[in-house]
Design a protein around this nucleic acid. Structure first.
Lengths: 250, 250
DNA sequence: TCCCCATTACGTACGCAAGACACAATGGGT
DNA sequence: ACCCATTGTGTCTTGCGTACGTAATGGGGA
């Protein structure tokens, strides 16, 4: 197999396009059929999964790198994206990459930063699954949604990153407009409730939940109802303008 | 003036001790006489102030670098220290350093990372002012506590960093054992209340505050009272064991 | 020395929001 | 036409936070 020209230049130390020792990783969450979904990539040759990520380019803001990763994998722009932690331990499992590079015909020098020490700034994103156009990156052969509870073990320290992303999500559930970004424009009250229950891991009272949401004023009831279900048709709702917060510079 | 040998080696690109393009900054908070204090350094030659910070060494964890900065400036170890954000904008004001380097007789090449692009991971620390032994670093001529409201304008983007640290502090006031780390072992109820009021920027009802704190169970009343004041002697309290959380790996 | 009074300690009443639960309405399935 | 799971709405209770009143204390001023 031919060596990737990008990798060859990178390993020769000639690449001044990237900020060394630095990367971004994105935990991209979706919600579908009552389940939280996580977007994962499968690496070529390694056959193992990781979060979408990438390196930071010279002259590119950190947030810009995260926005780029999100855009390149999902086609989405201006969606909910927040930094939540920088992971800077000494051994984050970078050497798991070595077999992949070898299989690609490129050999990094043993002291090259890409296999020695990388600090990764982690972001989480909330997206509407229906709007996503999945696309793997140069190093991966597949890109798909996983049910959060059935996800495979991840490469590097990405299990740890995912866990902290979820913890952050739960802690901020009522402050950030989480649901407004995970659900489609129109949704029913039970759908909204199942999202809350899934994120919180508890069950909530239907009637009190509805009251709380409506009194709070952040969602608006539409005239339409959702038909096709086997029971009484529920109303459709949408979020009030103020509830949708997009992008990193609000 | 003679060139600093560390700087000379760094600018010649020979220094493999530091991870390039990466630094840590610490917002170190204290509390004294009813006021929140912030620890600042005054740079040599520049005569301007900044947060304590430093570069990350090869083989040093990110958290370790923050702990080292805190220890070197205050002599303290195992105190409350948390990462809260990575600042990675394109121009964070690094070129403010140029005059300082020049005055030290060292000239960085114009494309050197130290004046081109630095991503800084920011931490905040909560310390007991009485236990701190202040010590400036190699680049600063003075190191002292400032009243938060009277602090001077800071170098780089450190005003922004300080603002976000405070915002994070306020948001987490009731969850993290903030007071347990800012106050001395023994303290009075009015002292605790003033800390809360200062951080929150509001005034609280004396009687309800006392009830809330005691019902919560995280503080314990001692048999002693504080004497010497001009009025009725208040009881002394201490935090319950569980309330004190120290260091980055609990 | 004694009174004054700011400050501390303890207790009660009210209001709002969340939680528990009952009942009516709907719409496809049988 | 009836059944019944599901949705929409209302009521009662509980608990926490807020507002506020009263008693106790200890140093300072006359």
């Amino acid at each position: 197999m031919n060596a990737d020209p990008l990798l060859t230049r990178l390993f020769a130390g000639q690449d001044r396009q990237l900020v060394p020792h630095l990367s971004v990783d994105c935990a991209i969450f979706g919600f579908h059929e009552g389940q939280i979904k996580l977007l994962l990539l499968r690496w070529r040759h390694l056959r193992a999964w990781s979060l979408p990520g990438g390196f930071v380019r010279t002259g590119e803001p950190l947030d810009g790198a995260a926005e780029r990763v999100l855009r390149e994998r999902t086609g989405l722009d201006r969606v909910y994206l927040r930094q939540f932690h920088a992971f800077g331990g000494i051994d984050r499992g970078e050497d798991a990459l070595l077999p992949a590079f070898k299989a690609m015909g490129a050999k990094p020098p043993p002291d090259h930063w890409i296999v020695s020490r990388i600090v990764s700034v982690a972001y989480f994103a909330l997206v509407d699954v229906a709007k996503v156009a999945l696309r793997p990156d140069a190093f991966s052969e597949e890109c798909r949604w996983w049910d959060l509870n059935e996800r495979p073990p991840l490469l590097f320290d990405h299990d740890e990153i995912t866990d902290l992303a979820l913890e952050t999500l739960r802690a901020q559930l009522d402050y950030l407009p989480l649901a407004a970004n995970l659900l489609p424009e129109k949704f029913t009250m039970p759908e909204l409730q199942r999202l809350y229950e899934t994120v919180l891991g508890t069950s909530l009272d239907r009637r009190n939940f509805q009251k709380r949401m409506l009194d709070q004023g952040s969602i608006v009831r539409l005239k339409e109802r959702k038909t096709g279900g086997a029971h009484r048709s529920p109303f459709l709702y949408r979020f009030a303008r103020s509830a949708r917060s997009r992008g990193l510079t609000p």
